[in-house]
């Protein structure tokens, strides 16, 4: 188990080890098929550990299980088997879930509400004090460049604006674990700066971050590590530079796919 030693004075004799942000062992998740008689597993015995304060880029082809993994960690989907410890707690525990920030893949926010109303609702659901919600929503809307559109209904937002809003709602309650699913989909150049600002804030408060994306460029500037998920398992893990070595992700998938054809990955 990897962990970060807390910053104790040099003369201290007791060294406490901070538990990892994520501890996942043999995780399986999927959905029933054939009228519930069979199951199709998307995650197949996945193993992953993430140290506190680190930023992990998660890459993988379509259907490899990136989004499912993030949904299971966020408590949206349930795992069918395996062990999942999030922030040293059980994901079924409401107090643990409230320490997670999640940007879903499809921005499924109610189109009838304005950005400000929606952030206030998110804050209320998360049981944040009302004054704090007001302050944080105004600050975050300014940070993501939506302060002038704060009263506009989300249904009138463009895709890029919705992604920026999604980043703001994920960061609203200063989560200790931030899960971002395809955060740059639809973002313009200014949007990339917004993502950088949100991640900088997360790093500053020692939050752990998982960024799932098809494009390594989305996380290469921010991630301390990268993992490649193939067929529901972590197939590769290392630094972005080390893994890519000038190769494209597609070349990496093909190389790994050929390499692991005869043996289980992960």
């Amino acid at each position: 188990m990897r962990g970060l030693a807390s910053r104790e004075p040099a003369h201290a004799t007791l060294v406490t080890v901070t538990p990892p942000a994520l501890e996942i062992h043999r995780l399986c998740a999927g959905y029933p098929t054939h009228l519930g008689l069979r199951r199709s597993e998307v995650l197949r015995g996945l193993e992953l550990e993430l140290a506190r304060g680190s930023v992990l880029g998660l890459a993988g082809p379509n259907g490899s299980g990136k989004s499912t993994l993030l949904r299971v960690i966020a408590g949206v989907e349930r795992a069918s088997s395996g062990t999942l410890r999030v922030l040293d707690g059980n994901i079924e525990d409401a107090a643990v879930r409230r320490r997670i920030g999640y940007l879903p893949e499809d921005s499924p926010f109610p189109p009838e509400l304005s950005a400000q109303s929606m952030l206030e609702l998110c804050g209320a659901v998360s049981r944040m004090p009302r004054e704090l919600v007001k302050h944080e929503s105004a600050r975050l809307l300014a940070l993501v460049g939506l302060e002038s559109a704060a009263k506009k209904r989300l249904g009138r937002y463009s895709r890029g604006m919705l992604r920026r809003f999604g980043l703001a709602q994920a960061a609203l309650h200063a989560p200790e674990l931030l899960l971002l699913d395809e955060p740059t989909a639809g973002l313009d150049a200014q949007g990339f700066e917004v993502l950088g600002a949100i991640l900088a804030e997360a790093r500053a408060r020692q939050a752990s971050v998982v960024i799932a994306s098809h494009l390594p460029g989305d996380f290469s500037d921010h991630a301390s590590e990268m993992a490649v998920i193939l067929e529901g398992r972590i197939a590769l893990r290392g630094s972005v530079k080390e893994l890519l070595e000038g190769r494209s992700l597609l070349e990496l998938y093909r190389a790994r796919g050929a390499h692991s054809a005869g043996a289980p990955a992960g």
Binding site: R71, V76, Y102, P110
Partner: peptide, 17 residues
Amino acid sequence: RRDVDWLAPRAPNAAAL
């Protein structure tokens, strides 16, 4: 189907919802 993505991670109180 839809709102679960932003509701479930916040562990809302079902009675309040």
